[in-house]
Each structure stands twice: as structure tokens, then as C-alpha cells.
Nucleic acid binder design. Sequence first.
DNA 1: GTACAATTACTGCCCAGGCAGTATAATTGC
DNA 2: GCAATTATACTGCCTGGGCAGTAATTGTAC
Lengths: 146, 146
Amino acid sequence: MAKTTVEQGAIDSVAHLIAQLRQKLVESVERELAPLGLTHAQFVVVAQLANGMAGTPVEFCRLLNYDSGAMTRLLDRIEEKGVIRRVRSSKDRRSVGLELTDKGRALYPSIVPLILGVNKRLLRGFSKSESQLLDQFLRRMLANET
Amino acid sequence: MAKTTVEQGAIDSVAHLIAQLRQKLVESVERELAPLGLTHAQFVVVAQLANGMAGTPVEFCRLLNYDSGAMTRLLDRIEEKGVIRRVRSSKDRRSVGLELTDKGRALYPSIVPLILGVNKRLLRGFSKSESQLLDQFLRRMLANET
DNA sequence: GTACAATTACTGCCCAGGCAGTATAATTGC
DNA sequence: GCAATTATACTGCCTGGGCAGTAATTGTAC
């Protein structure tokens, strides 16, 4: 049996709402990306690589707050799909450069609108000022020590 | 190497903020629960069981929107720690009843204040009306189709 | 220059979760 | 009453993460 229908009980904390939202978002992104053969986690790396936000495993770990071992294996899976490539650096021979393959570059443009769509639908019904207020609220919670 | 420091790049969408918040919350709860020997996922089951929100694996799957196989294994781990117990039902012999053990019942009261603390600190600096507005925003996003 | 420390990527081991398929038991249709 | 369907819990196999420890390389102190 796969997942059953959603319900909800008494745990109505903000924390729980956030957890539910995150799950919903991941599911949506996975659904959109499935035809392209990418998972949510894999998409994030590909997108950041395409945007030049990071170029080595350790940079991705810092950018995405990831464990180093988890990143190694995530990159393994993306590389195995032929979307990225590892290139050992000649300057610092500890370091590994990451590049999109031709396949990866071809894939990226079709990903962007899908992701923008998910974010847009998430905020459906929100006015501009409401979105801005929500953004502030989220940032304030992120800044709090928990 | 374990996780490195946090930073953030260009993905500033609400979706990404929600993902970051969720990660932060899970880490906080794990940190609080570690001395008690429970993980975040395990705590959720124990708490809902203590509150009588669910009593069988399939009920927990519905309550927490979980896959059935994942739930079986999660329950395995909690049972192995001696916190819960499986009792085969005599009425419906497919069904498995779940109960807190003495150890589980003893554990629960010390969990509650830890979790309330995390939620309280998350909302530090929020006025009552701000918290309510935030709650509405989150529920509205949850209700949107994505 | 050579010990020592830090950095990088990786591995093993664990927990967490989804999907597909299975055996058993209960329910439904007829 | 019995065949077909549904429900329940489970298993195998996969991706995704964290933690600890390691080998290789680089940087630093002296």
C-alpha cells in the first residue's frame, strides 16, 4: 500500500503547519519533475549549479546546509543520470569541480517554469502586501534561536 | 566532516524559506530529545499515541500522512527502544494495537515541555495578532493546490 | 624544511521515507 | 455460502540525510 489520504488531528502548532507545507511542496516538485527524471533534491543541485551559485561539493554543502557524505552520494546519483560531471581540479587536487553536461544544460530550461509554477500556486490568493508580510514572518522565525 | 555553516544564495522563494524553517525545527527538536533517546520522527508517534490520536499503524499512517512501509519500520525502532508495544487485535486479526510501555508512559511527561519550548521560541517576538495572521497564512497556503 | 593543523572528498553505518508487491484476514456481492 | 474485493501490516528496494572516521592534499608554525 502507498500513502493514504490526509487528515489532521490536534497538533495545530505553527511548527506542524510548516512541516505539512514543506511536505506538500516537495511532493508537488517531485510530481512536476518526475517526467524529467529528476527528484526534488537533485533539482536543487542542478538549479544552483546552472546559476553558478556553487561549483564544488563543499560549496554545495555550505549553500544547502548539507552533510558532506550526503552530498557525495547525491552527486553520485545525478552524475549517474548523466546530468552533471565531476572534474578533478588541477590547482587544488583535493577539490572536485562540478559541471553540467550537455544533457544537463538541455534539461535546465524546462525545469525553471515548472518550479516557478509551484511557487506561484503556493501563493495563490495572496495579495502583494500579504506575500511580503508572510516573507517577513518566515524570516523572523528563521532568525529566532530555537 | 559533519555539516558546515549556513549561508544562503539566490533561492529566496517562500518555498525555500519554508524548507529552511522545517529543517531548523527538526534539528531543534532532535537536539532537545537526544538525551531521552528519541528522534523527531519517533517523538511524533509517541506524542500522538499518548494523546490517543491513533492506536494502530494504519491510523498513524492516515494521521501523519505516512507510507505504510515507513510506518512499520518506524514502529519497529520505537518498539526496539522499549517505548511502545504491539498487541495483535483479537477482533480484527489483521490489525495491530499500539500501546505505550511503562517506560513510554514515564518518558512522555518530560517530552512535552521540551516541544512546547521549541514552538514558543520559534514565535519569539511575534505579537498575538501576528501569530494568528501567520497561522492563517500557513493554512491558506496548505489549502492551495500546488 | 618539517611537524602539525586544516581542508576536501569520500566511506561505513544509521534513521527516515516512498513505491511496489505480498500474505492474511475481513467484507461485500451475488 | 463462496468468489471477488478491500483492508492491514509487512517486506524489498530505492532516494535522501546525519554522524563519525579516513586518505590525500594543502596551508601554517616554527
